[in-house]
Simulated scan of single mutants.
Amino acid sequence: MKVAVVGCGAMGSVYATRLSGGGHEVLVVDAWPEHVAAIAADGLRLSGPDGEHHARVRAFTTPPSEPADLVVLAVKAADAAGAARHARPLLGPQTMVLTIQNGLGSADDVAAEVGPDRLAVGIASGFGASLRGPGRAHHNAMRAMRFGAHAGLGEARVESVAAAWRAGGFDAEAVPDIAAMQWEKLICNVAYSAPCALTGLTVGEVMDDPHLGPVSRAAATEAWETATALGIAIDVADPVEHVRAFGAQMPAAKPSALLDIEAGRPSEVGVINGAVPREAAKVGRSAPVNATLTALVQALETRLP
């Protein structure tokens, strides 16, 4: 499969390196000229618990006019629609587009750019990755990738995406209801994203803190209640148990929202905690815990250097 990864940051570098190692023809597109130059000269280098990987891939700052079989949008949620628009030279009649972002809402924006019937949505769970310099990335874990159709993409085509990722060494599956899995992940993310971003604490520290722990659990419960009211078929009987089990797997982790704040850039809290009150409003409900946490993080972001 010919795969174009648009957005070759930390996660995009993990995807591109492993997909190349799985036998796929991979090219990457990224806005950082030094990163692109390093990849073009010496390939991508990825380190992690499973050792060192080196992938020779083509790299561009502007997408070449050559259709790919699969275009992967590995960018922040706020950039997803723009990345889809930027990637149009890579789209042929049969090209599939896979968008992998945190939170809810960005897939709808991507579908408006590329068409809903070619779009798959991906969920990455249990990943931690960082760029160590131009052409060099590191990952802490690679747990699970799940893929589903946004609208009209056929089951066989979604399975072909999952198969491509399995060839790259990922725990990857095609699922019939990606929306349910998005909400199951969101319930965990809202428990820790904003609380960690506001305090600088890790997942485990927030989970066990006598003051923040109840707030974290309330945010998760509110998301769970919203999903239930929306009729989402989530497989979560107890949201508190769900988020504690999640947190126990990675107590030292810093959510991406905290990493963004530490780096002095806006976070994705608007599509994580902020998604809950927007979705709740669709069924006449409110989500005051998540609305307040979102507002506090966004106020913090206005004061970033």
Rank of each mutant, 00 (worst) to 15 (best):
G122P: 07
F60D: 11
L104C: 04
P64K: 12
A111F: 03
S65W: 11
V114K: 07
A68G: 04
L73K: 07
S47K: 03
T99Y: 12
T62C: 08
P93R: 06
D50L: 11
L70F: 04
A68D: 01
V71R: 00
R118Q: 07
G128A: 13
I123Y: 14
P93Q: 02
P116I: 00
N102Y: 14
P64E: 11
M96V: 14
G128M: 05
G51D: 08
H86G: 10
S125Q: 09
P116G: 09
D42C: 08
G126D: 11
S47I: 13
D50E: 15
K76W: 05
A124E: 02
R88L: 15
G48P: 01
G133T: 01
V114E: 07
L131I: 13
G126E: 08
L46C: 00
S130E: 12
V121C: 09
A68M: 08
L46K: 04
R85N: 11
G126F: 09
L91E: 06
A40G: 15
A81M: 04
L119D: 07
V71Q: 04
S65Y: 11
A80Q: 09
A112L: 11
L119Y: 11
H54T: 13
L70D: 03
S47Q: 11
Q101Y: 08
G51N: 03
F60H: 15
S125A: 13
A84V: 05
G92F: 06
G51S: 07
A80G: 12
H53I: 01
F60M: 09
L90Q: 00
A68F: 04
V110S: 02
L98R: 05
V75D: 10
E52S: 10
F127C: 07
G48S: 00
L90D: 05
G126A: 10
L90G: 00
R118M: 02
R85S: 14
L90P: 03
N102S: 13
A59Q: 07
S130I: 13
P116N: 01
R58V: 06
E66W: 12
M96E: 12
R118D: 05
H53M: 12
G43L: 10
A40K: 12
L70R: 00
I39K: 01
A124G: 12
R132Q: 14
H53G: 04
T99S: 15
A77Q: 05
G115D: 06
I123M: 15
G103E: 07
R132N: 10
H86M: 14
A120L: 07
G122C: 10
L98N: 08
L91W: 04
R85F: 12
A83K: 00
A87N: 03
R85Q: 14
V121A: 06
M96Q: 15
L104R: 01
A41E: 15
L46G: 03
